[in-house]
Write a protein that binds this DNA or RNA. Structure first.
Lengths: 336, 336
DNA sequence: CTGTTAGCGCTTTCAC
DNA sequence: GTGAAAGCGCTAACAG
């Protein structure tokens, strides 16, 4: 039925060992035999059985990729980029979705190990560091992306959230805004904490006292945008600009703005965090602090590949700088 | 290093065969030994080597999933649902992205076969039917989802596009609209053809002659929404409603509407095809013809599982009925 | 019910 | 440069 290396060997009149070497492109082999074997193999339609090879070499050419979901634009970009690049490098990726649930993630990691993935790129929930460390000890490189695990010495590729929020806030400040609202994620996540810190720092450096009423924190959900937007806009002195530093809530904020009949940017300036294709199709196009998902994905792949190539775990944290993308949703305030 | 079945056998003082049977939950085994082996296995931290098992049984417990991209909401839902359900069923999914490119798809299928996936759920480009058929002949079940391959007798799970477009158009007609614009995908895709057919049928049944100027067809891209929207809205007698039956162009249409300062639904009624989470967050919330991506995904999994269970290829085409989701973007026209 | 044994298809010493 | 042979870890006859 299936044509095996044996068949190739027989057809090319060499031993299986030679056939294997020829196909693997081993150096210690006669050029002529090499060519011949390769030709014969192609002729009879031979394809390496990766399972058998994996059993022997303990290399599956499979890597795991776990993300919280596929709705968040950053995770989606991560999935696309990792998939495309790893495939080009001869690896297949097993995608798993954790729903940001520690329990599910635990199961996923176990199964991935069972399938003997050669490596793992994970957006971790943060709760299964021990398991990840165990994988590292079992010589399976793990790269954390977007999120990290505190206390575990794993290579992590993160966004420079503090710096990004600082840059974004500064941009708004530079435009003359003084009352700047912030909608941010939970403060028990690194990104939530750091984005708030960046905002705070920029405000303080500008000599402004941070008004707690201008800060709304909530879950990574569209609803947060609605409650946050309404809360901020209902203030006695509402903000002249809102920095939406919680990607998922963007759509909720847009809804509130539209319901209140506010026009952007004349009534309110809006700055989002993490770019999404449709932000630029929006009218006015939304300015964003792009956290660089594609670059994070690329670096994650680069790091994984070098780990796969034998480089030791640096335990290092890499930060991808944020980038301000000015579009049309922020206006300069006339000097008053 | 790694603990094998041998170790379990030794530790439990039975043969490898018995250990294997105990772990596999074979029927022909003593309850007591069974329990004992399982306990010992857990105690020494045994985990089945799926690669070795796959080599022996020719079942990898891996399935392939190919989609054009992760941006289209339907593909995303397909990926999420298939991943979650297959995982729960003890399978892992290898995700590949074809970019709707026949060449890339060809490579993907080859690699998937190399990794001996047990089955495949594919959103096919349509150009590699022979390869898919070859997989079927090699006893690897293939289920096509969302798109199909003409001329190949493969099980396909499709949306009832003709019916959906018919329903959507009828809805608009029922609201009193007579000049209904249609923005649709390429006519060399099944969905493009069928959606146009559904629209045409509804119009004709209402006794209306179809004005070709009201039909804009274009690629599955946001740009199409811009050119299409502008073309339709620039007509001497512009439509009172636009049926955007090309998911990707939705965002482009919204942009045109906003640029022209049109208000929905008073100036123009809008009906989209294929639901997306953010459509309901939009203000006004967008009415849609939901093509049922989640249901397609579920059925695809069901079909794959029964094929995996030994059921023969029915070669059948399954259609998931569309559903009209009325929100707030279509208004009834006053009888004139 | 349990043990012995023969591979699945491949890579890789180790001899020649 | 090439071949023979030994498994990787597991399952599935086949005996007992």
């Amino acid at each position: 039925m299936t044509v095996t290396l044996r068949d190739v060997a027989r057809a090319a009149d060499v031993s299986v060992a030679t056939a294997s070497r020829a196909l693997a492109g081993s150096s210690l082999i006669n050029q002529a035999t090499q060519k011949h074997v390769v030709q014969v193999a192609a002729a009879i339609g031979y394809r390496t059985n990766t399972v058998a090879r994996a059993l022997k070499t303990r290399k599956s050419r499979l890597i795991g990729l776990t993300v919280h979901n596929l709705e968040n634009a950053s995770f989606r970009v991560l999935a696309s980029v990792v998939q495309a690049r790893m495939q080009a490098l001869g690896y297949q990726v097993i995608l798993s979705i954790s729903n940001d649930d520690a329990e599910q993630e635990r199961e996923i990691f176990k199964t991935l190990v069972d399938h003997s993935v050669d490596g793992l790129i994970a957006v971790p929930t943060g709760s299964n560091g021990a398991q990840l460390l165990a994988m590292e000890h079992a010589d399976t490189p793990v790269i954390c992306a977007v999120r990290r695990v505190t206390g575990a010495s794993l290579e992590s590729i993160l966004a420079a959230d503090m710096e990004g929020a600082y840059t974004g806030t500064q941009h708004l400040l530079g435009l003359g805004h003084r009352r700047i609202g912030l909608i941010v994620g939970p403060l028990d996540t690194t990104s939530g904490k750091e984005r708030l810190a960046g905002y705070t720092r920029a405000m303080q450096e500008a000599g402004l006292t941070v008004d707690p009423a201008l800060i709304h924190r909530g879950r990574y959900l569209p609803e947060t945008g609605v409650t946050g937007g309404n809360a901020l806009l209902s203030l006695a002195t509402p903000p002249t600009a809102i920095f939406v530093a919680n990607h998922e809530s963007s759509v909720g904020v847009l809804r509130v703005v539209s319901e209140r009949g506010l026009s952007i940017p004349s009534d309110l300036s809006l700055l989002f965090y993490e770019d999404s294709p449709w932000f630029e199709w929006q009218r006015p196009a939304i300015s964003v602090v792009d956290s660089g998902a594609a670059d994070m994905a690329n670096l994650a792949v680069d790091r994984l590949m070098s780990r796969l190539g034998g480089v030791a775990n640096s335990g290092r944290e890499y930060r991808i700088g944020s980038r301000l993308v000015e579009r049309a949703s922020c206006r300069a305030l006339p000097a008053s």
